[in-house]
Design a protein around this nucleic acid. Sequence first.
DNA 1: GTAAAACTAGACGCCATTGTCTAAAACGTC
DNA 2: GACGTTTTAGACAATGGCGTCTAGTTTTAC
Lengths: 224, 224
Amino acid sequence: MTGHTQRGQCAKRMSILDAAADVFCRQGFAGASIDEIAAVACVSRQTIYNHYREKETLFVAVVEDVMNRANAMLFSVLSTFPDRADDLEDELTAFAVRLNKNCICNHDGKFLRKLVQTEGERYPHLFESWRQQGPGKLTTALSALFARLAHKQALVIDDFDVAAWQFVALGNADLQMMILLGATPTDEELEKAARNAVRTFLKAYGSPEAEKAGHPPQLAAISG
Amino acid sequence: MTGHTQRGQCAKRMSILDAAADVFCRQGFAGASIDEIAAVACVSRQTIYNHYREKETLFVAVVEDVMNRANAMLFSVLSTFPDRADDLEDELTAFAVRLNKNCICNHDGKFLRKLVQTEGERYPHLFESWRQQGPGKLTTALSALFARLAHKQALVIDDFDVAAWQFVALGNADLQMMILLGATPTDEELEKAARNAVRTFLKAYGSPEAEKAGHPPQLAAISG
DNA sequence: GTAAAACTAGACGCCATTGTCTAAAACGTC
DNA sequence: GACGTTTTAGACAATGGCGTCTAGTTTTAC
């Protein structure tokens, strides 16, 4: 139980977890075979059974592993939310790109979406905890961040929770089909999707005082 | 091969297709067993092999069946899109409710989302045709319908395709999590989600001239 | 260097599933 | 009522995956 052994074991464990995530994601739980996972992980089948009692144990461990990584990435991205009202459109667009690219369209996001949908009913406890720690906290965090921007007069928002979800939903609007099919969007597609989303978001929630010359508000000319 | 026989066979076929859709949706392709499908359909296993050569043939037939039903329903709902500018918010909200309830949150929608995601890469041709005939035509149709409203000065839209996707995306925003977990939203939840979506959509795309007393535009008071 | 621990390759029993086959039964037509 | 078609129930071989076991090899600790 010394450091070296731990490192070796740890490496095998990670290799197994990565391979299992790959195979489970492609084939689903029922379609995945331990032999294929062992082959992808470059490990003998017995080693897998040595670390995890059975297929189900392995599956749960994989899901927890991916969940932890995804949540960490999510909060890492959240910490880059724009704090000041300057260049709000560009800043929000860049943030939406980061969110889509690193949390939703990446491997882990694809894995979780797929597996939550297919196995969620079979493991309610597992995915309930994901929902609470992932998307649940995303909502409250984003909601608070938008509240801060609203407090600084950069946005005009009546319901922060609703606005938070709508921001995320708008960000995915153009990518929905690609997300469904598991394709990875290019940087241009990500940029364009985020740009469209933020433009519409700001048309709905943008503060008139914060508008700059570049994008005059459509309704500014109305008198009353 | 007379009428009665046809009717009997047809009933069996439908029974098999329905049962197979149910089991495939719950268990996935790999996890579904012919025996379970036969049991749900109240049919002997041999009858299934009599109608469909093998499991894969049955699966393809089920997907095509559900796709056809879903597309028909989609266009049926699309035909109820509001045509006049009166009561636009209420009309759009009711439309969004219909779209979510009958096309996205129903059994067929759940089935297609699940199966496109899990088996889409294995049957690219099948799901490509779905994409073109379903969501693809939804975009162009919605886009044209919004263009008509814009032409009537009820909306102000620069890019109709983008607006169409955003309308759908906003409509799903509140339901995303339930959709992912396969839960069926209540009527109240559907109503509230649609209401939030349309409010924001109209804040972004609403025409100032069409605004009524009930919901004054946020930017109307600006002089500049 | 040695001993313990971990890993490998492969064989093995077990079970579920697929797809076929057969004989009997149900159904509809004439 | 006789005939052809369809359905049924069950047996059947073949396949493949799971999980165990064993014997031999590599890695790690001291």
